[in-house]
Design a protein around this nucleic acid. Structure first.
Lengths: 190, 190
DNA sequence: TTAAAATGAGCATGTACTCACTCAACAAAG
DNA sequence: CTTTGTTGAGTGAGTACATGCTCATTTTAA
């Protein structure tokens, strides 16, 4: 190999894409992404075969980060309520700390450009933490509703809570976080 | 006036736009929309000044329909739980009956092409039914949480419930609808 | 040396929107 | 009840520009 690819450039392209997609949607042009990343447009295509490829890799990059956060944050000790509450706090903190990534995820999910394979890989990333959540929730929630309450509602409700927080003064943030968790915990009780 | 505009054509264009935006996103071209509506591309621009104008009118058309459904469905009698439950059933029924519109709404909301004025008008459409919901929920929910639980969570949770239903066999639909409502009602209790 | 990364002008295709023109629907004149 | 004139809806080829992607050429690290 005469000259290696630069991980630095790859990440600069992904970061630039995230920034532009968050504000302009997936219609952000490869020209604008390359320019923002400080590389020529041709370079973008040596790191990513197609624009769709870039989009899918960006999707997985963000999902990997979120999955790792959930995994790393999961407490080994404490009652079920405390464990879910801790996870809830970490989810909210992740969203509040990564507003760009959250916008990107929303854009990519409705874009129709994320492949089935990417979604499959994403699911795999969350499998481990999902199982821990299920263990913690066992007994608290009707087993027949477990899948709905974990796979659909948990992250969806966290998302809505972060949105509401973003649209409110800081003073209310803790209050909204509590309101979101109470809704989830009391609502899922058997 | 030499020749009146045809309401029929206007609606054909809006319907075609909805169908194409639901599947291809707001990137659907004016050429493809006009073709699907059975009119020339030029005609589209005599009914809608710009593509953004078409998008905004489509948005308000759908929001008006949803707001009317909520208003018309609101029961005058019954306890608070029964009233909210009835509204919940109508919301779910609306979403299940209008999958295309739901997809369009999602696309338009993340598109960044809906003006502040359109959102303001949309809010106005829901004002009356929102007040009825607030009256029904009074006493059941902490007043400080009222806005979050009504403005953000109610429709958001209904949306998630419809998504889960769409991804499940019909046999489970009633079960999911109940699970979603229980979560909302028990979760919002003071 | 040399192979591969990096470049950016160039290419085919698509885009929202225009415009000169046609013709259908109305109103006034006969 | 015709005839005729006027207006503006309807048309689709045309326009200027943007798009994803290529490739001949240059630069750079092994």
């Amino acid at each position: 190999m005469a000259r290696p690819l630069s991980e630095e450039k790859r990440e600069a392209i992904l970061a630039a894409a995230a920034e532009l997609i968050a504000t302009s949607g997936t219609g952000a042009s490869t020209a604008s992404i390359a320019k923002a990343a400080g590389v020529a447009e041709g370079t973008l295509f040596t790191y990513f075969a197609t624009k769709d490829d870039l989009l899918n890799q960006l999707f997985l990059e963000i999902e990997t980060n979120l999955a790792q956060t959930m995994m790393a944050a999961y407490p080994a000790k404490g009652g079920s309520r405390e464990r879910i509450r801790h996870l809830w706090d970490r989810l909210i903190a992740w969203g509040a700390a990564n507003p760009t990534w959250r916008k990107v995820l929303r854009q990519l999910k409705v874009s129709g450009r994320i492949t089935a394979e990417s979604r499959r890989r994403s699911n795999a990333l969350f499998r481990e933490s999902r199982e821990l959540v299920e263990q913690s929730m066992a007994g608290h929630v009707d087993p027949e509703r477990m899948s709905f309450y974990i796979d659909t509602v948990l992250i969806g409700l966290a998302d809505m809570t972060i949105d509401a927080m973003a649209a409110s003064p800081k003073k209310q943030h803790e209050h909204l976080k509590q309101a979101g968790f109470d809704l989830y915990w009391k609502g899922t009780a058997v």
